[in-house]
């Protein structure tokens, strides 16, 4: 088998395994997995920019929130149906990521971190400022009755899980395709050495903007899906904390590995869930685990896997 075949089988296999898991796992865990898949989409969007292009953003919560509020407000005030509302969420995330990308890409490195952080912070405050419509920190509920797509009830365990899986699979395959395409290789070239990429004739600025936009829209789709599947939109999701989460998930799972974000998100979720069952001081366990991981798995879980056993991991 060639590496390309291997990686194709890997991606298809992961999706099939996830689909089967719904029928095997107890209800609690399949419910968790639905949420994890949505969040993993957010992390995959982040991974494209951070893991493959080498741009560390601290403001991705802005894109997540753009998708969430684009969908939420469209349903709340204009009675959009879920499909149209998802499109509204994606459009808002697209517009926001173009604007942010256009301005923030004038900077690199730490300045890029700060500029994205500041834009996200301004976005969070804007949600509070327009509290009359957004209900600020408290947020609003998307009623159960509105969360139907045709005959599919998105609030049923199965409807929710397979909608989440569908979104995950689409984004997973898109990422798998991108990283093998010329575009993806150019992004890696930028990550490894921006000057050399410029000298080789790549339009670095344009490529980076495209990466920001794809990454932003993917994060936005996760935000829209979260609001739709779990029935709630709130400003908490626009806070800095939610910008740091995808960074953490990606670093834990393995930056620049296609399955890294999924692994990192699952790991972090169950780290909190199980340690909180052992002790109320679960943050202590989570903190220790993070420190130990940095010491012993420097490239994240999937990164270690690639380094030690599976050098062909995309």
């Amino acid at each position: 088998m060639t590496d390309i075949q291997r990686s194709n089988w890997l991606h298809i296999g992961v999706v099939i395994a996830l689909a089967c898991s719904f029928f095997i796992l107890p209800e609690y865990h399949s419910g968790n997995l639905a949420r994890i898949l949505v969040l993993a989409v957010y992390a995959m969007g982040y991974n494209l920019l951070f893991g493959y292009t080498g741009l560390l953003s601290l403001g991705h919560a802005l894109f997540f929130a753009a998708g969430m509020y684009g969908l939420g407000l469209a349903m709340q005030f204009f009675d959009f149906n879920p499909i149209a509302a998802v499109i509204a969420g994606l459009i808002l995330a697209l517009v926001v990521s173009i604007c942010v990308g256009f301005l923030a890409l004038r900077t690199t490195g730490v300045a890029f971190m700060i500029v994205t952080l500041m834009f996200a912070q301004a976005g969070y405050l804007t949600i509070l400022y327009f509290g009359e419509y957004t209900r600020g920190d408290e947020g609003f509920v998307i009623q159960q009755a509105d969360r139907m797509v045709g005959m599919i009830d998105l609030t049923s365990p199965m409807g929710r899980f397979f909608t989440a899986l569908l979104l995950f699979a689409i984004c997973f395959f898109i990422i798998a395709y991108i990283v093998r395409s010329g575009f993806g290789l150019a992004l890696v070239a930028i990550r490894e050495n921006e000057e050399r990429a410029t000298m080789l004739g790549y339009d670095v600025m344009r490529l980076k903007l495209q990466a920001v936009v794809i990454s932003g829209v993917m994060s936005g789709s996760a935000g829209a899906a979260y609001a739709l599947l779990f029935g709630y939109a709130g400003a908490t999701f626009a806070t800095v904390q939610y910008s740091i989460f995808p960074l953490l998930w990606v670093l834990l799972g393995g930056a620049g590995v296609t399955i890294g974000p999924l692994i990192g998100t699952i790991f972090m979720f169950y780290l909190i869930d199980y340690s909180s069952a052992i002790t109320p001081a679960y943050m202590l366990i989570a903190g220790l685990a993070l420190v130990l991981l940095t010491l012993f798995a420097p490239q994240g879980l999937a990164g270690e896997l690639r380094r030690r056993f599976l050098p062909w991991l995309p």
């Binding site: 960074l247 834990l252 202590l284 903190g287 420190v291 940095t294 010491l295 420097p298």
Partner: peptide, 30 residues
């Protein structure tokens, strides 16, 4: 204990110091 062992690698420092942040906060809370 931590940073020197990971040789001040930028990415790992972020995760490591987030871990420290959790530990310090939780110990203070307790």
């Amino acid at each position: 204990l931590v940073l020197q062992r990971i040789d001040y690698d930028p990415d790992r420092t972020i995760v490591g110091t987030i871990g420290l942040l959790y530990i310090i906060q939780q110990v203070t809370l307790m």
